[in-house]
Design a protein around this nucleic acid. Sequence first.
DNA 1: CTGTTAGCGCTTTCAT
DNA 2: ATGAAAGCGCTAACAG
Lengths: 345, 345
Amino acid sequence: MAIHRRPTLAAVAEAAGVSLKTASRVLNDEPHVALATQEKVRAAAVALGFRRNAMAVDLARGGTTPLVGFVTADVANRFYASIAGGMERALRDSAYQLITASSDEDPARERQLTEALLDRRVAALVIAPTDADHGYLGRELTSGTPLVLVDRPAAGVDADTVVIDNAGGVRQAVDHLVADGHRRVGLVGDDPRVWTARERHLAFVRAMADHGIADAERLVRDGAHDAATAQRSVTDLLDVPEPPTALLTMNNRITVGALHALHERRAAGRTVPALVGFDDFELADLLGVTVVAYDAAEIGHQAALLALGRTADPTLPARWRTVGTRLVVRGSGERPPPVDDGGPA
Amino acid sequence: MAIHRRPTLAAVAEAAGVSLKTASRVLNDEPHVALATQEKVRAAAVALGFRRNAMAVDLARGGTTPLVGFVTADVANRFYASIAGGMERALRDSAYQLITASSDEDPARERQLTEALLDRRVAALVIAPTDADHGYLGRELTSGTPLVLVDRPAAGVDADTVVIDNAGGVRQAVDHLVADGHRRVGLVGDDPRVWTARERHLAFVRAMADHGIADAERLVRDGAHDAATAQRSVTDLLDVPEPPTALLTMNNRITVGALHALHERRAAGRTVPALVGFDDFELADLLGVTVVAYDAAEIGHQAALLALGRTADPTLPARWRTVGTRLVVRGSGERPPPVDDGGPA
DNA sequence: CTGTTAGCGCTTTCAT
DNA sequence: ATGAAAGCGCTAACAG
């Protein structure tokens, strides 16, 4: 069977022996069409295998699409996937539908995708921004298209934003460790170019200072963007003089790296420090890892609400939402320091 | 600042004092435009914040879009996310761009998304089908739009398909266990409504039979669609008379459930069987879990190639691609059976 | 080099 | 209850 060009509304109308407008009415369930006519049109549509051209519809309707675009930093990352899931569910009962495209953490690609989605006239745009400059996302670009940033704010853009309570989460972890008697807490963090890494780092130093520990910076190792690097950072950190009795790992990749390091260390018969990780992860329960957890889907949910709200009223001032964290105690974070070590002076 | 309607090409042309077509030429980098004119037009476009309307462009160009649609069964699932990642990369250098929408394993939603994408005239459609009937995906619906199915074939549709070598993977696992002396191997599988679950189940029985073990069916537990159910199935299975000395878990959720069950069992001082899981997962190395692994991104890669190929030549016969598996030995699969148990007769 | 005239496939007016 | 005509924003084919 040859593949013919898709049938148009005009073809359906002709086959049904009615005018284009009548066919349109029927297929859009508009009132005021005789039942017999309706049936003729429906039959013709089915017979021809007619599918309305959504682009033509949206164009004629005024040029906007019932689509919410999501530019994710990394499709294959659970965290962003959960955000997408949360948005999806929040949009489920609205007239809107989510479409996702991945920037793969590449600023150039992110911009290109953003523009492509904008060109396609999405009703709203949600971006998990990489850490480049986002000045380009100005009013002249988005031109009224609702914009929501998730996980990280974008430099140079005043837009709706949803973030985790990074400072609060770090504080929970620090308070927990210090309450157990730890004074020397090590921090293994992501690349400081990442906004969340900077936030968590700062919050850590502040929280430690609030407990009277001023030189927290000494036990900070930044720049671990993957598990392998994190593993090395941990090994390093545990070999300094006066090593940390507890470790705070600032995201799940780093926590995994740390687990590998501690695993080796334990295999070598050496003592391992307490460990609290930022981000929950699968099997953390089995492995007994204490973490600062939060609901990633909730980020998406909030983002969708902000986007929807702004499509309804584009004049709203930029809003900022924070998703809370909670400490999940599982054992790794509850190893007190050795008695001759780090106890109260 | 008020939010004005987006400027049109006509507005740019007027502002630049040229005709619509000239403005179009400049903005499409077509040749034969005086440099001075180009500059005037470009300046006007920037000044007005002009963005071309991609819907109008595609409509005028003949109604097809440079978009490949992917209907994923579950956005938040690593497996599908990796597939999406593989497609994304494969399309990177083509003129096409991937957009993803999630069916959330809901057949009705899957159909709705499929139709929406088709209505939007995507250049090709890739679907990770749920297990309902897909007769609706006939020629009359897709009407020539290239269609590729991933992970599972769709009942009632003869389309390009990419699947894992399920039978081969299961055979690798069975051979491995039997070589270690196991004769009583238990299988914990997903809901048999899932095609891959059926495939793996069948392959298991066949592989066992090839080793002269005819009653393999006795130690099969199907229907574990989540980790919690899997955990119960495993506990069950290990309590039957003549229990399995080795376990085959048929996907990563099930493997995780099994790990929980074995963990408890070990904590209770009881012996644990050997374990081989289908699907690799993060931390499997740390936990020493032997698995049948494969490259999920490769599925996406193949899917993208098939889709691209078919946009180029829609008359191709339906093709079928299989992505291979490999056994990754990490310890859990290398526990021989107790000597008084299941050894050679 | 530049502009005019038709459409792309559909939805609006506004008539009838 | 039905239809004709105009137009959404853009490109294509053909003039000049």
